[in-house]
């Protein structure tokens, strides 16, 4: 099964973000969307998640799929505690017992078990981001969309989460789609890196990395070549 995006158009008033956009993704890989700020990455994810509709075009391969989405912003309810925030999205899809289990598991993963009863406003930006990550993981949707999921997190936790994602992916072999501006992140996790320019968004290059994701890539010469390519791919317009 493949995710096929065909001849998609999306305008904001007279501003073209997607103009006859085409892309094809294997629906069982970790894909990285890489491109300059404002080129339309979030717009694309929103269309896939069904939050925004394309003006024209065809998308195949996501019918009846559920999504876990780590938004670019944390999107936490300010009047609900960390626990209540996660519980909110589990309550209609899981039994109470399952929900409790999922919540505990993922809050522990993002190292926030002690902050269960905190309100978002009493958390730092990075902590809120972690809640948002825990929420997405806990939902266990069929497709995982991540919009700069690790921004604001320090190296150690970032690595824990990336390793977790990689092992999680090995269990599920689903479609993981993540946006990042971080070259190291892209090279650590992705099987495929799609490099864009825009707006209007346009695929300029696609790198496929056939070395297993994770630590195996750390001291690999081939990765250095990819790095070189990535850094130069957007004519210095990258926000690193």
């Amino acid at each position: 099964m493949k995710l096929q995006i065909k001849n998609v158009y999306k305008n904001y008033e007279n501003f073209q973000v997607l103009n006859d956009f085409n892309m094809e993704l294997s629906s069982n890989g970790i894909h990285c969307l890489f491109g300059p700020s404002g080129c339309g990455k979030t717009t694309l994810l929103n269309i896939l998640a069904g939050l925004s509709t394309a003006d024209q075009g065809d998308i195949k391969g996501i019918e009846n799929k559920t999504f876990s989405y780590i938004f670019q912003e944390d999107r936490l309810l300010p009047w609900a505690t960390v626990e209540e925030n996660i519980f909110l999205i589990l309550t209609d899809s899981y039994s109470k017992r399952e929900a409790q289990g999922l919540m505990d598991k993922y809050l522990d993963l993002v190292d926030l078990s002690k902050f269960k009863n905190y309100y978002p406003e009493a958390l730092s930006g990075g902590m809120r981001q972690r809640v948002s990550i825990a929420r997405a993981f806990a939902y266990e949707g069929d497709i995982l969309l991540m919009d700069e999921p690790f921004k604001g997190l320090h190296m150690e936790l970032k690595k824990t989460l990336m390793d977790y994602l990689i092992s999680y992916w090995h269990q599920k072999k689903q479609l993981f789609l993540f946006v990042t501006h971080d070259v190291e992140e892209a090279l650590y996790m992705a099987d495929h890196i799609h490099i864009f320019q825009g707006p209007p968004m346009e695929l300029t290059k696609k790198l496929t990395i056939d070395i297993p994701a994770g630590d195996a890539r750390n001291k690999n010469e081939k990765i250095d070549q990819f790095k070189e390519m990535l850094v130069h791919s957007n004519k210095g317009k990258l926000r690193l």
Partner: peptide
């Protein structure tokens, strides 16, 4: 609206959205 979108992606039911958002 961003919270409503979040609830939509995660399949939160209407009644829960009314109560919690």
């Amino acid at each position: 609206k961003k919270l409503l979108e979040m609830a939509k992606v995660y399949g939160v039911k209407r009644l829960t959205v009314i109560k919690k958002i």
